[in-house]
């Protein structure tokens, strides 16, 4: 039953993406509104899916890669909504939702059974730590989407080819502010995630920091975004440079999330 919910939400996000893409082409107001509503419905269904999983498993639904991917997709849509509340960028969904869709589709190829928790993960910190870390990273993903849109829009301006897309994308200033806002929410959240992880590590293993690949990669991500924030705030990086660094940061997030589990995981893994 939970897998059906998963598929419904995936379908909703897919329809919503189509809505946003059509809006990009036809500029009909109702298309973007439909996209928003479908995203909302998908989000509610996905939340329900996670709750059902959690209740069934008796713990925060994050015990294997299938659940983690879905929780991350959920976090991304959550961050998207929070930022949309302020920015209302109608085409943002066309870029953010496909990321969630890809994660959810990959997850369908994985083992979907509910696995019992290994002893090390049986802690209240599991929910707190992962939620903070995932939400933090989710805001960075939205920042990435904003950065990509920024580069596209900038290219149009540069080429003096104000194509059909130009009027449908938000202004460079709005996109830049979106990126900054995402960073200022994502960075503290991610830091809180790392700190709660340290507290948990200290109470479970006796070590607040172990240079485990996952830890190290989240630190690498943290370094990158710390650099980006300082470059923005004190050196005055705006626009293109900031957008590129934010895209590099997104690469680090992807690797923390997938690369560590799939490539390095065999060597150092929590299990």
């Amino acid at each position: 039953m939970d897998i059906i919910l998963h598929k419904i939400s995936l379908l909703m996000y897919a329809f919503a993406t189509v809505g946003f893409l059509l809006y990009l082409g036809h500029q009909k107001e109702f298309l973007s509104r439909a996209g928003s509503w479908l995203t909302g419905i998908g989000f509610v269904v996905q939340s329900l899916f996670l709750v059902v999983r959690g209740v069934k498993a008796g713990h925060h639904p994050i015990s294997n890669l299938f659940e983690a991917l879905n929780f991350f997709a959920w976090s991304i849509v959550c961050a998207y909504f929070i930022l949309q509340y302020r920015f209302r960028i109608k085409v943002l969904g066309a870029l953010v939702l496909p990321i969630a869709i890809v994660l959810m589709t990959i997850s369908l190829t994985l083992d979907t059974t509910i696995a019992p928790l290994i002893p090390a993960l049986q802690s209240n910190w599991l929910g707190i730590h992962t939620t903070l870390a995932f939400l933090g990273n989710a805001f960075f993903v939205v920042a990435f989407a904003g950065s990509v849109l920024y580069l596209v829009q900038e290219r149009q301006l540069k080429n003096r080819h104000l194509g059909s897309l130009f009027h449908r994308l938000p202004s460079l200033d709005v996109l830049d502010r979106l990126q900054y806002r995402s960073l200022t929410i994502g960075f503290p959240l991610m830091t809180f995630g790392i700190i709660t992880g340290a507290i948990w590590g200290a109470s479970a293993w006796g070590s607040y920091w172990s240079w485990d690949p996952k830890e190290t990669w989240s630190l690498i991500t943290w370094f990158i975004y710390a650099a980006l924030l300082h470059a923005r705030l004190t050196i005055g990086w705006r626009g293109r440079k900031a957008a590129w660094l934010s895209i590099v940061g997104f690469g680090a997030i992807l690797f923390t999330f997938l690369g560590v589990n799939l490539i390095l995981g065999g060597l150092h893994s929590y299990n």
Binding site: P213, I220, F223, I224, A227, H230, A231, V260, L264
Partner: peptide, 21 residues
């Protein structure tokens, strides 16, 4: 210089990668 800080952060990030591989 904050430039130095940004460069150091990025170097730290790059070097840390070696250790995870």
């Amino acid at each position: 210089s904050v430039h130095l800080a940004v460069i150091l952060l990025l170097i730290l990030a790059a070097i840390s990668i070696i250790g995870t591989v």
